[in-house]
């Protein structure tokens, strides 16, 4: 998978999460509590993605000599869901309000990010796989926060009525994608 597709998929995942986390109103992104909630969601997705990536590599390494596995997706889906459930249980025991996190959305996002991560680096070592999964999760969290930042700065302004809500969010995502592609082009 090339860098353009990788960036596009991560931004699309962040956009879907933004749409599902909070309503498209200016007040939804106006408070520091909202920023904290978005940041926590991003960190939890990154955590589940990283742990699931490590677990996937270990299980794949175990199953490979047995020739039992033919599809990475077949392994990623239940494994990520299980890791998300374990994280939910462990973190809720630590702090009870973690039970209110959107674990279903975290699990779904982590599945997508893990598939991206697995496709980006096939036949990698454990350390590489771990870094890849972590980098994918961190990139997702950064995209989510950048979308939040763009929205909180642009949404409250006196926008024309047709641009309010979803259109300006899509424009923000487009701007973000453009910036990331530009950066990738410079780095590349």
């Amino acid at each position: 998978m090339d860098a353009d597709a990788l960036i596009g998929l991560i931004i699309a995942t962040a956009l879907a999460n933004r749409l599902l986390i909070a309503p498209l109103t200016p007040s939804a992104t106006a408070s520091p509590q909202a920023l904290r909630a978005f940041a926590l969601h991003g960190v939890l997705v990154a955590l589940v993605t990283t742990l699931a990536g490590a677990a996937e590599w270990s299980l794949q390494a175990f199953l490979h000599p047995l020739a039992l596995l033919h599809s990475t997706g077949f392994l990623v889906l239940p494994l990520t869901a299980a890791v998300a459930a374990l994280c939910a249980v462990a973190l809720t025991r630590w702090r009870a309000p973690f039970a209110q996190s959107r674990w279903w959305l975290i699990a779904c996002s982590a599945v997508v990010l893990n598939l991206i991560s697995a496709a980006a680096a096939e036949s990698a070592t454990f350390a590489t796989q771990l870094w890849n999964a972590f980098a994918t999760g961190a990139a997702f969290a950064a995209c989510l926060l950048l979308l939040f930042g763009l929205e909180s700065r642009l949404q409250p302004r006196d926008l024309p009525a047709p641009f309010r809500g979803l259109p300006v969010l899509l424009l923000n995502a487009g701007l973000l994608a453009l910036a990331c592609h530009g950066l990738a082009g410079m780095v590349g």
């Binding site: 904290r36 940041a39 926590l40 960190v43 955590l47 973190l91 630590w94 702090r95 009870a96 309000p97 973690f98 209110q100």
Partner: peptide, 10 residues
């Protein structure tokens, strides 16, 4: 990150 962002129980 989790220590900084974890919700504090009321």
């Amino acid at each position: 990150a989790l220590r900084r962002l974890a919700p504090v129980p009321e």
